[in-house]
Design a protein around this nucleic acid. Structure first.
Lengths: 188, 188
DNA sequence: ACCTGAACACCGTTCAAGT
DNA sequence: ACCTGAACACCGTTCAAGT
């Protein structure tokens, strides 16, 4: 048994239930060990949240400067972050003590700097993008948990609108946010 | 004792702890009644979440057509919704079966319609605004719970940046989103 | 009819006893 | 030293017994 195996099992179980509803007892069953054995590798359930989050975010790459325009790089990063967490209900980006969260935050800030934002504007743009992404992840999970949500319902209630996929909504929203930020970019 | 008193007590307790961490026993203590008495007025803790959310959102006004430009009306609505939930950690907008959630969603959609968005674009714009607001509420609460969060840390790490207040970030982000949406408005 | 104590089936985690 | 069963202090809610 190892920390990695525990995280793996938690991810497996968190696929169908919010991680906070996966009990340590259920996790132990999944691993075939007594409950308290887990505590030899993971100090608490809270620390398990962080380990799961970090293992998910570890997959997210920060595109390098030659991977396209700054808009494309940002979009790519956010798309991957969203995908990494979309199927882990109950796992959000806790930017507090997470190494991976910090890595990605720095990635976003450096892309914004390369776009020409000064420190102040980059910080504001970062907060805007981060806000949008947290909302996106939250909504992805809401929709996954109850496909008859009122966001969809509200959308559908607007007459002859064809149903919008989550991906279309993401692309539209992200492009809108980027365009709004670009308008605040100091002229080159 | 009444449903209203129970919701009031829950709001009181949810000021300092996330509502999901307010136990029915603690709520009963706050009200000075035995635990099971609450169940004569509220069918379950889940239904209590909805009652608390609805009572908070009930305060949020949908500005009428003569309350300013559509941008100002949207901003006013979102500002109030944010304020209504910012101090209720653990209470998000569950658009599922909430009357107040539906009322506000329809309010936003009607403002977007008055701005000239067609149904499809209005639905996409609504989703974008909603995503941004959910993220904002989440982050407000994160920050309230741990004022030394990494979003702030990341911002501060960018050298000589003065600390940004949550309100400044909201104003900047909201304006950026609105500007991005406006760019998608069919030309009048 | 309305109310509610005791009990049930859970939690995360401590702690002491096992090897 | 490492492991882990039993126990503790909680949960939300059922249900039967009280008035």
């Amino acid at each position: 048994l190892s920390e990695a195996q525990i995280v793996e099992a938690a991810v497996r179980l968190a696929g169908s239930v919010r991680l906070e509803n996966v009990s340590m007892r259920a996790l132990a069953d999944e691993l075939g060990v007594p409950v308290m054995t887990i505590y030899n590798y993971v100090s608490s359930k809270d620390s398990l949240y962080e380990l799961v989050m970090d293992s998910a975010l570890a997959r997210v790459r920060v595109p390098s400067a030659d991977d396209g325009t700054w808009e494309e790089r940002l979009k790519q990063l956010e798309r991957e972050a969203r995908a990494a967490l979309a199927h882990l209900p109950g796992v959000t980006i806790d930017r507090r003590d997470s190494p991976e969260g910090r890595r990605l935050a720095e990635g976003v800030l450096s892309i914004l700097a390369s776009a020409g934002f000064d420190d102040q504007q980059a910080a504001l743009a970062f907060a805007t993008l981060f806000t949008f992404m947290i909302g996106q992840i939250d909504i992805d999970i809401d929709v996954a948990e109850a496909s008859a949500s009122a966001a969809v319902a509200a959308v559908q209630s607007t007459a002859e609108v064809t149903q919008l996929s989550r991906d279309e909504i993401f692309e539209f929203g992200f492009d809108a946010v980027i365009e709004g930020l670009k308008a605040r970019l100091p002229r080159a």
